[in-house]
């Protein structure tokens, strides 16, 4: 019997270890960014190189596996979110892919010092090492000048941008600091659904982002005939500047489905909160109030 006891003990302990590892990994997925620009300019001198792209360049973001969340924003949102992603204290690595006259080069860099000037954003970069540079059809690092296309693949941010729709039925916690947090970009509509029984939504704006605007929210109801009702709506703002301990959140909206629609049959009705913000960037936290 002794070997059986040992094997079962080992399996149990390893299984517990696997559970612990799984829960830890699931708690903190990181976010990656892929920016594709229709033009780019490389400027500067050795040791102080910069790459600039249009601020409106399309940016996709996606979570590390096992997360399967993705969404879109623009390069300007990455710049505005820089400090809140802790990129100011621990700058991100990135793959910089540049194309000119049909020739493509790929270089691994560290990005820092993001700037916005007019309709362009720029980043200082340094090449991680010569070994990291892949000479594909041309030789040497990207030279000064303009490029017809450029891509930036950027690791590894702790904060996601808000998906267009997201489900808050299982928020992480019951305070703004422990709730589900994401970043809203300006004039984009987001829909929060699935909350139960009570949901609070609070927000703040990053210091690096333009503030002073307001968040517009609508409490909405759809029935199974696509009949739409707006129960309540409001404008909230200006929001306070975010603090690292999330103590600066302002209440935006709360929701208690059973109160708003006591006769609603959940089989035929769905209810959600819809948000949009005039601030360039807004940090949103949704959490459950028990």
């Amino acid at each position: 019997m002794r070997p059986i006891i040992r094997i079962s003990t080992l399996v149990t302990v390893i299984a517990l270890g696997a559970l612990i590892g799984t829960s830890a990994a699931a708690a903190a997925p990181s976010t990656l960014f892929s920016i594709t620009a229709t033009n780019a300019a490389v400027t500067g001198t050795k040791g102080n190189m910069r790459v600039s792209i249009p601020a409106s360049s399309s940016m996709s973001w996606f979570t590390d596996r096992p997360g399967r969340t993705a969404g879109t924003a623009t390069a300007s949102a990455l710049v505005a979110a820089w400090p809140i992603q802790h990129f100011d204290t621990d700058p991100p690595n990135a793959a910089l892919v540049t194309t000119r006259k049909g020739k493509t080069m790929q270089t691994i860099v560290v990005l820092s010092d993001p700037r916005t000037k007019g309709r362009r954003v720029s980043f200082r970069y340094r090449v991680l090492s010569d070994e990291t540079m892949l000479e594909m059809e041309t030789t040497g690092r990207p030279t000064l000048g303009t490029y017809a296309r450029a891509s930036l693949f950027v690791d590894d941010a702790p904060m996601v941008f808000c998906p267009a729709t997201f489900n808050a039925s299982t928020p992480i916690g019951t305070t703004p600091a422990t709730g589900y947090k994401c970043l809203m970009t300006a004039n984009t509509t987001y829909q929060v659904s699935g909350h139960s029984p009570w949901l609070n939504v609070q927000g703040c704006h990053p210091a690096s982002s333009t503030g002073g605007g307001y968040v517009h929210w609508v409490d909405s109801l759809w029935d199974n005939f696509d009949y739409y009702s707006a129960y309540d709506y409001n404008d909230v703002g200006p929001l306070p500047v975010c603090k690292s301990d999330f103590s600066a959140f302002a209440q935006i909206a709360d929701e208690y489905a059973a109160t708003n629609c006591p006769d609603c049959d959940p089989r035929y009705y769905s209810e959600s909160l819809t948000f949009s913000s005039t601030d360039a960037l807004t940090l949103l936290s949704t959490y459950r109030v028990n």
């Binding site: 700058p91 991100p92 793959a95």
Partner: peptide, 16 residues
Amino acid sequence: AALSWFTDRPARQAGS
């Protein structure tokens, strides 16, 4: 096809 790899921050390792 050329493949670059690099580490998440704060590590600064890369290769091909």
